[in-house]
């Protein structure tokens, strides 16, 4: 039996909005295995965003367990978790979330900087990945000088910078037109062929069909079908 990269076990997340308490997740169970391309699909209000936090170990659960590579994340301090997250998971977001003041190559180099990689290695790796995603000619352009599709390619390159086991993409095509979005999905599939696990969170039924399997979310829980 393969060991999951991420395992959520009866995860609850409760937010307090003044007096009221909102349960965004109500006992979510899921497992992501190495090499998979998984879609997490659900309508808005289904707890998708909170699920992204949990799958990406960006936050601690209120109740239940989150295991990152078999280890309970509550046993890590926030800083240790940040380090581990940086090595294990790369993130791709709907609104690209690149640093506007940095060039493409510096954006890709940034996660390596936070892992203490030497500047020389940062630059050579960043260049290599950017060439692979088809942006070899855009290395020194800042996000404002790139199209949406190009920015998302930089973001994918950045997600791959520390050679993580898994890439978590949260609505990666949400801000792109359909043909550009398709190209991004193709790129993610290519990355997946290189044995990288891809988790794509989306509300789009069509997109989720591109994945090997789909996890459906409803009312903060995984369900068989929507």
């Amino acid at each position: 039996m393969r060991k999951p990269i991420i395992r959520l076990e009866n995860v609850w997340k409760t937010y307090s909005l003044g007096e009221a308490k909102v349960n965004a997740l109500q006992g979510l169970d899921l497992e992501i295995f190495p090499g998979e391309f998984v879609a997490v699909q659900g309508p808005s209000g289904s707890g998708k965003s909170t699920a992204v936090n949990m799958i990406g170990s960006l936050d601690y659960p209120s109740r239940g367990k989150v295991y990152l590579n078999g280890r309970d994340i509550t046993s890590f301090s926030e800083s240790d978790l940040a380090q581990l997250r940086g090595q294990t998971i790369g993130f791709v977001f709907q609104s690209f979330n690149l640093l506007p003041t940095l060039s493409a190559i510096d954006n890709v180099a940034l996660p390596m900087m936070f892992q203490g990689v030497s500047r020389q290695k940062q630059l050579s790796t960043a260049r290599e990945i950017l060439v692979r995603v088809g942006l070899g000619h855009r290395l020194d352009n800042r996000p404002g000088q790139l199209s949406g599709g190009e920015q998302q390619r930089v973001a994918i390159a950045r997600a791959m910078a520390n050679n993580p086991e898994m890439i978590l993409a949260d609505e990666p095509t949400g801000n792109l037109d359909s043909s550009t979005g398709k190209a991004i999905i193709e790129l993610l599939k290519e990355v997946n062929k290189e044995k990288k696990t891809i988790v794509m969170v989306t509300h789009d039924v069509k997109l989720s069909r591109e994945a090997d399997r789909t996890i459906y979310l409803k009312d903060g829980k995984a369900v068989k079908r929507l």
Binding site: A82, R85, G86, G90, F91, N97, P111, F114, Q115
Partner: peptide
């Protein structure tokens, strides 16, 4: 703040 969130998501510790 958004940039800080990005830095943290891509592996920056609070101290960094």
């Amino acid at each position: 703040i958004a940039e800080i969130g990005i830095m943290k998501a891509i592996g920056a510790t609070n101290n960094q």
